[in-house]
Write a protein that binds this DNA or RNA. Structure first.
Lengths: 192, 192
DNA sequence: GCTTCTTCTTAACTTAAGTGAACGACTTTT
DNA sequence: AAAAGTCGTTCACTTAAGTTAAGAAGAAGC
């Protein structure tokens, strides 16, 4: 479990044994059952998450309707907006599958950044990379039709289509479940 | 000019005079005429930008058509995707107005991070905050219609509607110029 | 075992966005 | 001054997404 995390970190910066021990000492590994809620709308939180195994989603509730805006799977991290803005959360985070997730909080960050400034560099790099990825995704979303977006997803994250319910995928694509269903049959017919 | 930048930084971390001098020594302030191109598609670049005055846009050219995905005005920074990924740029960056922009490169970053680790913290904070903002914008985009997106823009960045041509705004909203024009008259008629 | 809920699909209808073409108002170029 | 290009708008037409409703299949709860 720890090693999965350290292998991931090793891709960005080397960690000494002392630094690894410091991480282990934080005792941040948690397991959650499918359906478990990590963060609720309205809640103040200073917790960040990193998915080691399983799948977690972010969703809003607008007019009683769930709007899913993000899925996070193996080796993806989440720093909820409310942690950065110090405002109550506008969304929920919950597990779609049984999951193993690291849960850290701001206090831990401050502490470990002081002891090992290297982690500040790690977080800068991860944050910059995620920002770049998010902006590209946003650009692709803006410049393509729902159908193209579905085809992109099929290309880039085919696993999601398997592990995520259709109606959650639909709002992730910015459309209704009915449109997604139609769009899928439309694509099928073209292929035949 | 320098002070505009330092006032901005002061909102996040305090800078000593030595640190300010180090920034000034980098000689990163540039002025550009309207229409000037900062980055071209296909180009490798390690330059980051920060807009002190004016307005800069990011746009793709897809099938000969410009697709504008971002506008950056006073006190907004850009680290182009290609700088992070070390790949040729997929998009252009150009000035919509006469602008004053800081232009830094990766070498400078490495250098100044070593001399003054405080800047690494600054970049982490800025990057985390921008990431949070970008994700919220993306969520709003996904969960609203073109008309709602236009109304949101009217609320959140009314200045853009003044300083940016309609057809660039349209692709920024993910629609055609014709749709934007229609949508605007639709809204007008509702108000009357 | 039965009910209830959730999920997905289908259908009919409404609404809005994409497309292609055209026009006038301006700007820029020559 | 004339020509060419840009920009915003409008129109007619096509295409697709939203909406409302209904039904089938499966999962979860009692």
């Amino acid at each position: 479990m720890e090693n999965t995390l350290f292998d991931f970190i090793a891709k960005y910066i080397p960690l000494s044994e002392a630094e690894k021990s410091a991480v282990v000492a934080l005792d941040i590994f948690r397991t959650f059952k499918k359906g478990a809620v990590l963060l609720k709308e309205g809640q103040y939180s200073s917790e960040g998450y990193f998915v080691l195994k399983g799948c977690v989603r972010i969703f809003y509730i607008v007019d009683g309707e769930e709007k899913t805006t993000g899925f996070y799977t193996e080796m993806e991290g989440i720093t909820p907006n409310c942690v950065v803005s110090k405002q109550p959360s506008k969304y929920f985070i919950s597990c779609i599958e049984d999951s193993i997730v690291t849960v850290s909080n701001l206090g831990m960050e401050v502490e470990i950044f002081e002891k090992f400034p290297k982690f500040e560099k790690l977080c800068r790099i991860l944050s910059e990379q995620l920002l770049a990825k998010t902006q590209i995704s946003f650009d692709e979303f803006k410049t393509s039709s729902p159908e193209q977006r579905y085809l992109n997803l099929l290309q880039n994250r085919p696993d999601l289509l398997q592990r995520v319910p259709q109606h959650q995928l639909a709002s992730y694509l910015g459309i209704t479940p009915q449109s997604l269903s139609r769009l899928r049959t439309r694509i099928m017919e073209k292929k035949i």
